[in-house]
Amino acid sequence: MRTVAIHAVPEEQLTHVTFDATMEERISELLTHYPTRRAALLPVLWLCQERYGWIAPGVIEAVAARLGESPAFVQGVVTFYTMFYTSPPARYVLQVCKTLSCAVCGGRELLEHLKARLGIDLGERTQDGTFQLIGVQCLGACGSAPVIQINDDYYENLTIEQLDALVDELSQGKEA
């Protein structure tokens, strides 16, 4: 598996976002799935997060303008959901499941280990911007606890040794 790193576009470059032809094409295609423009909001936000790495205020304005919504409405939607990044994420976002099945099957230990190894607490990121650690709720893979999601990918049944090897690989710039 290759976990693709996130490359967050700096905020300065996202103050006035105009969608290029590829983005426009994909947005137009998405709009054909729904009878209303508003319904395309989540898919368009996903598209933007893929493209820019996060949902900057400038992105919110561009999406709002494209779909005929107010920026305030789009902002309200963005902040309701946990998966849209409203600040630039690190290259690898380590999402450790904290819910019951994982917690009692080694998840708590994994989390403590990660905190100690990276020297950061939940919600923080490493100085070099490689890792960010967040606690998440049940990932729907409890049978293979403990589970960690890194960017888009699931890593299941992880031991501390496997996790260490993974973190080594990722921090050496290789995409695992």
Partner: peptide
């Protein structure tokens, strides 16, 4: 019949 996949964004 058209079938579309629609992704949520993190909310139980």
């Amino acid at each position: 019949l058209d079938v579309w996949v629609h992704r949520g964004a993190g909310a139980y």
